[in-house]
Design a binder for these strands. Structure first.
Length: 616
DNA sequence: CCGCCTTTGAAGGCC
DNA sequence: GGCCTTCAAAGGCGG
């Protein structure tokens, strides 16, 4: 079971240590190695053993004599060798390369890690693969990167055998495991574009992001020798796997061939798009910068700052890996994706020109946005809704129904996103994007009342009367619980909530959540105030929910039925979808879910039923 | 074709 | 520090 502890580190790498894997199933993945390769590497292995044993005493020259002569790019080999030597020492202690810095974090050894060299001095395929996974875009592993070999990486955690040949493939495996944990015990099929993707439940949800932590990328190009067969000979970019190798879950845009999808791309596969839309020509910014070490932040900031970054002739960094947060204004304004110079010069006015020159750096997604990205397609598929406004309402309620652990994952993801974003674009401010979207809603919101709100509804839809909301008192256990975000802060005050875990402490941002948002509409409809409901009523309601946890609020049950009395639908607006059943909008409370922890997977995989059941 | 709708969270500005 | 505003995604819908 993935577990977050309260590391509280600020740097990206620190998050890695907050995640520990105790899945013994990983051990099974320490599979037997290719026999022939082993044979080839036996001599090297023994030499490495000797080296590791006499590491301190043996001189460099002796080591040089013993091991195969490295090829010209010795530095990479040397560092890799050091790493593997250390790995070998660890492996001899029980098969796991246990991090000296994170002792409680056993992670998988690659079977032939100890034998990184072939007899001819070249890196073994597995070692290459491993390096490719660990430093997908690495030219020369930095000392920091080597140092951070202690950090768990997907490379340690994924099956290292056989068919994983490219970083993209590695990401796919990890990303696809993202949601598997919440859906089943072993693996699930996640449908994306009708194509099922096998997902391994034991993969930690944050794994994909770990991949992109500081430790695992370098803003430099990968060494051709590390994985020559998978690199674009021209660019040095890992090649794009054949479509058959790639899950539609992680599509690459046509213009992004050879590019690694966004680290959070797994969150958006449903739409067939990366998290941030990738313009046809790709982004101007190199994605590897996402992985810069803190020590490199200055370098990266100077290199990749939107205003400083030099443009690659093809609009890409030499790595060809863009950052998805950057959207060319021209692209936004030119849906056809015309990036020709003419397109840029089309608009008159120097001011506009300047605006267009500035790439539009989007805000990093917050936790809820990440959640929506991931779940939208699922909801769409389950209830055949397509209207985003309605979907978002459902997702908003589902969000509140998430357990703290699950929300914590998204808070953590969002935190990493923000960190990456801030490191990528140090000078960027959310204010920069002000005005890029048309001013909207404000007037409406300011003037809106419960009455004109209903009057403004133009679509035929189910009316959720404000009166119902007024009935919803803070004393309503379900209502208050659902209304109140399942924030750790609220949950901490709730004895009935799932036992506090490290995860809550590990998400500093979520601890500062506003329990209740001042919504223009909600403010008028007696939604329990955050302060009152979270402090006083949370304890009472939680206790009541604890007692009510015996009831099984699976989605197949008309949850709205139990809540319809005490917990009317919380929609502030009608949903333009007449067939929406309240159960769609009232998933089990986090406390129910907690009580039904063992049924969690069932709940998650339970399709939302549009069948209206008797409220009784 | 553009903006609205709708959700939550983050961030910045203002008082 | 609290409040307000804007934006982030998404896609149908209305003017």
């Amino acid at each position: 079971m993935p577990q977050l502890n309260g590391g509280g580190g600020d740097d990206l790498g620190a998050n890695d240590e907050m995640i520990s894997f105790k899945d013994e199933g990983e051990q099974e993945e320490k599979i037997s190695e290719n026999v022939s390769a082993e044979r080839d590497l036996d001599d090297v292995k023994s030499s490495l053993v000797n080296e590791s044993e006499n590491n301190s005493s043996s001189s460099d020259s002796e080591q040089t004599e013993r091991r195969p002569q490295p090829r010209p790019d010795t530095e990479s080999y040397e560092k890799a060798r050091e790493y593997f030597s250390e790995a070998l020492r660890r492996q001899q202690d029980g098969g796991f390369f246990k991090s000296p810095h994170y002792p409680g974090y056993p992670f998988l050894m690659i079977p032939d890690l100890a034998s990184p060299y072939l007899s001819n001095g070249a890196l073994s395929p597995s070692a290459r693969t491993y390096l490719q996974m660990k430093w997908p875009l690495l030219d020369v592993p930095s000392s920091a990167a080597l140092k951070d070999s202690r950090s768990p990486t997907p490379g340690h955690l994924v099956k290292t055998q056989t068919h994983i040949h490219t970083p993209v493939a590695v990401y796919i495996k990890n990303f696809s495991g993202r949601s598997g944990h919440q859906a089943s015990e072993s693996c699930i099929y996640k449908h994306s574009n009708k194509v099922p993707v096998v997902q391994h439940a034991h993969m930690h949800p944050l794994t994909p992001l770990i991949t992109y932590s500081n430790d695992h990328f370098s803003p430099t190009t990968p060494p051709a020798h590390l994985s020559p067969e998978i690199l674009d000979p021209k660019t040095g970019i890992p090649r794009t796997p054949h479509p058959s190798e790639l899950s539609p879950y992680y599509p690459l845009s046509p213009g992004a061939v050879g590019q690694i999808p966004h680290p959070l791309g797994w969150l958006v596969p449903q739409q067939g798009q990366p998290m941030y839309s990738i313009p046809p020509g790709g982004f101007r910014h190199p994605y590897p910068a996402l992985a810069m070490n803190a020590s490199m932040s200055s370098l990266v900031s100077s290199r990749f700052s939107p205003h400083v970054v030099p443009h690659h002739p093809h609009g890409l960094h030499q790595t060809g890996i863009p950052h998805p947060a950057i959207v060319s204004p021209a692209i936004k304004q030119e849906p056809n994706g015309d990036l020709s110079p003419a397109a840029h010069t089309k608009s008159p006015g120097p001011a506009k020109k300047e605006d267009e020159k500035k790439p539009h750096i989007k805000k990093p997604l917050n936790a809820f946005m990440l959640y929506m990205k991931e779940m939208r397609a699922k909801v769409v598929a389950e209830c055949t809704l397509k209207e985003s406004a309605a979907i978002n309402q459902i997702l908003g309620r589902r969000w509140h129904s998430l357990s703290r652990e699950e929300q914590a994952k998204y808070y953590e993801l969002a935190r990493k996103e923000r960190q990456l974003h801030s490191q990528l674009y140090p000078g960027w401010s959310a204010r920069d994007n002000y005005g890029k979207r048309k001013k909207r809603k404000r007037d409406n919101k300011a003037d809106s009342t419960a009455e004109d709100f209903s009057a403004r509804n133009k679509k035929p839809c189910v009316q959720y009367l404000p009166q119902e909301k007024m009935i919803d008192s803070p004393a309503s256990s379900h209502g208050s619980m659902l209304d109140s975000p399942a924030t750790p802060s609220a949950a901490l005050a709730s004895p009935a909530a799932p036992a506090p875990t490290h995860s809550e402490q590990a998400q500093p941002l979520s601890l500062t959540t506003k329990p209740e948002r001042h919504h223009p509409h909600f403010s008028l409809i007696s939604k329990p105030s955050a302060a009152s409901s979270s402090s006083s009523s949370s304890s009472t309601s939680s206790s009541s929910s604890a007692s009510s946890s015996s009831s099984h609020p699976s989605l197949s049950l008309p949850i709205g039925s139990s809540g319809s009395q005490s917990t009317p639908p919380l929609l502030s607006r009608p949903i333009p979808f007449t067939s929406l059943h309240p159960s769609l909008l009232s998933p089990p409370s986090p406390f129910h879910q907690a009580a039904l922890h063992s049924h969690h997977a069932l709940f998650q995989s339970q399709p939302l039923s549009l069948v209206t059941k008797s409220a009784d």
